[in-house]
Design a protein around this nucleic acid. Structure first.
Lengths: 361, 361
DNA sequence: CAAATTTATGTGGGCGCACACATAAATAAA
DNA sequence: TTTATTTATGTGTGCGCCCACATAAATTTG
């Protein structure tokens, strides 16, 4: 009942293990006759290589580069990083190692500066979160030139080259629809709902565009209440004066405001002001279980947060790369993770991460 | 930069690898002097064994038994099984194999009949879903006698012996609270909410008791609307006549019925009748993304389903056992998985499972 | 047809570890 | 002191695979 080994194949095909090895790795130098015998034996015995032994034998160290926004600038990224570390812990005995590079998505010009360093680091694969559309299209072009395969997480950039392995993350469009549904629980006829982008250069952030589209899509289908959908952009969130002014203006502009959908994790920057100047009817929906948002959720001032399984994103991406490099398994191109609806009552379970090496999706 | 190996330790401690091996495995036959030298070397070089090589060297096959309700009788169990298979696919190259035994929780007397077979199967570890309290306490006693460690999923049975490795699953109490919150979104003063157990022998199903407690707990804290909480038990769900009669009776008994919480995955058995005889104000909350429930969710007749991460439960349990047996890692005893609030808009993402060998939570 | 070249096949060492076995050192019994 | 006995230590083989190298067979060239 024990697994079929190379040797079993060799015996069955009446050749040496060296020949079988050559067939499996398509190294050539095998006669037609032997080739067929070996292939038949492999099929008959339903052989698949033992990747544990394979990993031990190929003593080559495999390096993976990770390129994500800095967790110290945006605490959201601590979570994917945690998943990445968890995966690293698992695959390190297979000779895999991980090197993390971080960027600031508010200063995308630095991304290009870091690119050469990453390209020349001798990495077998790159995991990147392409927050900035333009820069990362260039980055991935570089990957292509250097023949380095890559995986995307969190933000999806449509790429056609064959070095793009897969995307793992949320469906931004779907998350917009979900946000709409959550706000729609409490809408009344002729209410206003506001889509609020707290970022500059929206055009360059594909995921935000998709979220807005999804939100609007929901109300195209379900607009039984004649809800008024508005959208605004404001990026000076660190300038308190400007922020207050802006929010006052919003309240004035939209007297029937019943809900605010912030398309990033930055909802916490505006909740207080909306509550102060606006009516208490206003409900909020935003993204991500970062500390700053959680305090409002716990106080009941934010009703819903949408969680995008960040830890899982990082973990799955690394493990996918592992499968790809060690087992030659090609994953499906688009892997959408669940969009969790998080409120006070189920928050805890999302926070405590599963202990032990081997988490999983 | 390559990892420290046994040999490195041997050289540093000026002994042979055999001696190092003896120290690591506590096999004795090592002098005090040598012991100390080796321990010091291990600490200094921060050595940890390469579990890939270890697995290859210990050629022994490790068998894991899985004991869960039959997926053909309760389709919920297809999902944990999927996670189990996924994990199996990963660990099979490590010489691990899995054998699945199923039982019928409606006929717990058969559980004891199967027990000897499982105990004598030569398993290194058992994964069980202890739906029936009494029988599984006996079952786990047997595990203890036979010195076979075990992991619980989905239902938690408090056990004190040191062969109980861990529990992986939802927090039943918390899921009750969450259900209460979901129904409370639309309650009005003096509404009635009904906790409905569609099982017999509730006293023997610990998780159901906990769900009820959690539900009531929520309204102890949040009862601003003077909601009336009722609870009923009905188990003849396959007898349509009795079922209809029962539901009519409920409607009559509770004229202000605004919500029904079914504590298992069997909500689909009663939705239609409640909708037929009752007011359309009645909202439903139940568990599990099984096909029968999903059709109602998609039609908008069920608003919320609570998902208990079943696939993950199975996957994590097996991988936990793997870590436990191969890496000597002791996991934390209680691992609560997230309680996902699933509605029409985010359903899809929970259904499509991540492709590839190595999922992971 | 022998020699040189190309192509096909087999052999052996090693990855890091576990484990059986052989040997050496220390201690006890004769 | 010699011989058993116990205890300590080292060596060697193999897990399944990869890969470098040696050898053998087929083909080409002179």
């Amino acid at each position: 009942m024990t697994k079929i080994s190379l040797k079993d194949i060799a015996i069955k095909a009446k050749v040496s293990v060296g020949t079988v090895d050559r067939v499996i790795h398509k190294r050539g130098r095998v006669s037609q006759k032997a080739l067929k015998k070996v292939q038949d034996a492999i099929n008959e015995l339903n052989y698949s290589p033992n990747f544990v032994a394979r990993s031990l034998a190929t003593k080559k160290q495999i390096k993976i580069a990770v390129f994500i926004p800095s967790p110290s600038l945006d605490s959201f990224w601590a979570q994917p990083l945690e998943g990445i570390r968890k995966a690293e812990n698992f695959i390190k005995d297979f000779g895999f190692s991980i090197e993390v590079f971080t960027y600031n998505d508010q200063h995308p010009e630095l991304i290009m500066q870091m690119t050469p360093q990453i390209m020349q680091g001798g990495f077998s694969c790159i995991l990147a979160a392409p927050n900035n559309k333009e820069e990362f299209n260039q980055f991935f072009d570089q990957c292509k030139q250097n023949k380095i395969p890559y995986v995307q997480i969190n933000t999806y950039l449509d790429r056609n080259d064959d070095l793009f392995i897969c995307y793992i993350g949320q469906d931004s469009f779907g998350s917009g629809k979900l946000a709409a549904k959550l706000l729609d629980f409490t809408t009344k006829p002729s209410d206003t709902l506001l889509i609020l982008h707290l970022e500059k250069e929206i055009y360059n952030a594909e995921h935000l565009i998709q979220k807005e589209k999804g939100f609007k899509e929901y109300f195209k289908i379900h607009n039984n209440h004649e809800i008024d959908i508005e959208r605004e952009i404001f990026s000076d969130i660190h300038d308190k004066k400007k922020k207050k002014k802006f929010i006052r203006q919003m309240i004035k502009l939209y007297p029937n405001l019943a809900g605010v959908f912030v398309t990033t994790s930055k909802l916490h920057f505006v909740v207080e002001e909306f509550l102060e100047y606006g009516s208490d009817r206003i409900k909020f929906v935003g993204f991500d279980l970062i500390e700053e948002n959680l305090s409002y959720l716990k106080k009941g001032q934010i009703t819903f947060l949408i969680n995008q399984n960040p830890t899982q994103q990082g973990y799955l991406a690394i493990m996918g790369i592992f499968d790809y490099l060690l087992k030659d398994e090609t994953p499906s191109k688009i892997q959408h993770l669940p969009l969790d609806v998080v409120m006070e009552e189920n928050l805890d379970y999302y926070l405590k991460e599963i202990k032990g090496t081997t988490m999983v999706s």
